[in-house]
C-alpha cells in the first residue's frame, strides 16, 4: 500500500507540473496585453514599459515560469493585478461557496442519479425505464444556463420560494446545486442502470434469491454495492465538470465563488488570478480522483493496491 501511495503521489505531482506548464503557456499565448488593459486606452509607451517591469512581465517567459513555480511551491500564487489581494487570499475568500455548491450538487446528483438508475434497471424495458432514461438524457443535454433560468423563473419569480440571485446561506445554494447536479444525475443514472443490469444477471444474485431475499434486499444489499464502482469513478470524474459548470452557474446566480472569480479574472486579463485558480482547480480534481481510487478498496475487497 505504501509503495502504491508513493507512486500515485509522484504521478500526481508530475500531472500538476504538466498542468502548470499548460496553464502558463495558454495564458501567455492569448492575445491582449494585460498591462495595456490595466492602464486603459490612453496609456503611454513609457508607463506600459514601467508597469511591465514592475509586474515582472518583461522577463523571458521561462524565467517567469520558474519564478512563478518557485513561489507557488511555497504557497504564494502571486498577487492579483486588479484587486491587489494575493491570489491565495482570493481563493480562500471564495472557496466556501464553491465547495458547498460542489458538495451539494454531487450529493443531489448522486442520490437522484443512483435512484433513477436503479429504478430503470429493475424495471428494465418498461415505460418507467424509458421515462427514467429520457429524464437522464434531458439532464445531460440541457445547458446549465438554461436550466438555471428555468428554475429561477419557476421557483424564484413565479413561486417566490428561493432567492433569485446572490449568496445568503444554504437556502440560496439550493437552486444552483440542482442546476449543477442535474447533469451529474443524468450521467450517474445511465451508468448506474447499465452497471446494475450487468450485476442483476450474476449468479450471486440468483443465490441471494434462492436464500429467500426480497427485492429491496436484492437491489440495495446485493446488487448496488457490486454495481457502484463504475458509478463512483464517474462521480470522481464529474467533479471536473462541476468545476467547469460552476463557472456558468455562479455567474447566472451571481454567487461570489471561484467560478465567477475566474470569469472576471479572464475578462480583466488578471494573469496571476487565472493561473492560480486553474492550478488550484486542477489540483482539486486530481486529489478527488485519488481519493476515489482509494475508495475502491473499501467498496470491493478484491481490489488491493500493492
Amino acid at each position: 500500500m505504501s509503495s502504491y501511495l508513493f507512486k500515485r503521489f509522484t504521478t500526481m505531482i508530475i500531472t500538476i507540473v504538466g498542468v502548470s506548464v499548460l496553464v502558463f503557456m495558454i495564458i501567455h499565448l492569448i492575445p491582449g496585453n494585460p498591462v495595456s488593459h490595466i492602464l486603459g486606452d490612453y496609456a503611454t509607451e513609457e508607463s506600459i514599459k514601467e508597469l511591465e517591469m514592475r509586474l515582472g512581465l518583461d522577463r523571458p517567459i521561462l524565467v517567469q515560469y520558474f519564478s512563478y513555480m518557485f513561489h507557488a511551491i511555497q504557497g504564494d500564487l502571486g498577487t492579483s493585478f486588479i484587486t491587489g489581494y494575493t491570489v491565495v487570499e482570493e481563493i480562500l475568500n471564495r472557496i466556501p461557496i464553491t465547495a458547498q455548491l460542489a458538495l451539494y450538487s454531487i450529493i443531489f446528483g448522486s442520490i437522484i442519479g443512483i435512484l433513477i438508475g436503479v429504478i430503470a434497471a429493475v424495471k428494465k424495458n418498461t415505460i418507467l425505464d424509458q421515462l427514467a432514461m429520457l429524464l437522464a438524457l434531458v439532464g445531460i443535454s440541457a445547458p446549465g444556463f438554461w436550466i438555471a433560468l428555468f428554475l429561477i423563473l419557476l421557483f424564484s419569480y413565479q413561486l417566490s420560494i428561493f432567492p433569485i440571485s446572490g449568496y445568503s446561506g444554504f437556502y440560496s445554494l439550493i437552486l444552483p446545486s440542482i442546476t449543477l447536479g442535474l447533469g451529474t444525475a443524468g450521467s450517474i443514472a445511465r451508468m448506474t442502470r447499465s452497471s446494475m443490469l450487468d450485476v442483476i444477471k450474476q449468479d450471486y444474485i440468483r443465490t441471494a434469491k434462492a436464500k429467500g431475499a426480497g427485492l429491496f434486499r436484492l437491489v440495495f444489499m446485493h446488487s448496488l454495492q457490486n454495481a457502484i464502482i463504475p458509478v463512483v469513478t464517474l462521480i470522481g470524474m464529474q467533479f471536473g465538470y462541476l468545476m467547469a459548470g460552476a463557472v456558468v452557474t455562479e455567474t447566472v446566480f451571481a454567487l461570489p465563488g471561484l467560478g465567477s472569480l475566474i470569469v472576471s479574472a479572464i475578462s480583466t486579463r488578471d494573469i496571476p488570478t487565472v493561473q492560480g485558480l486553474l492550478l488550484f482547480m486542477a489540483a482539486m480534481i486530481i486529489i478527488v480522483n485519488f481519493v476515489v481510487d482509494l475508495l475502491y478498496t473499501k467498496l470491493d475487497p478484491r481490489i488491493q493496491y500493492e
Binding site: 450471486y204 436464500k211 426480497g214 446485493h222 457490486n226 478484491r302
Partner: peptide
C-alpha cells in the same frame, strides 16, 4: 411471492454449479 420467499432457503434450498460466481464477492 412473499410466501414463496419464506420457502426459499428455508424448506427448499439450492446449490449451484459455479461456486466461483455464486457467492457475493463484496460480502
Amino acid at each position: 411471492e412473499k410466501k414463496m420467499r419464506s420457502i426459499r432457503g428455508n424448506k427448499i434450498s439450492m446449490i449451484f454449479q459455479e461456486p466461483m460466481t455464486s457467492l457475493n464477492p463484496v460480502h
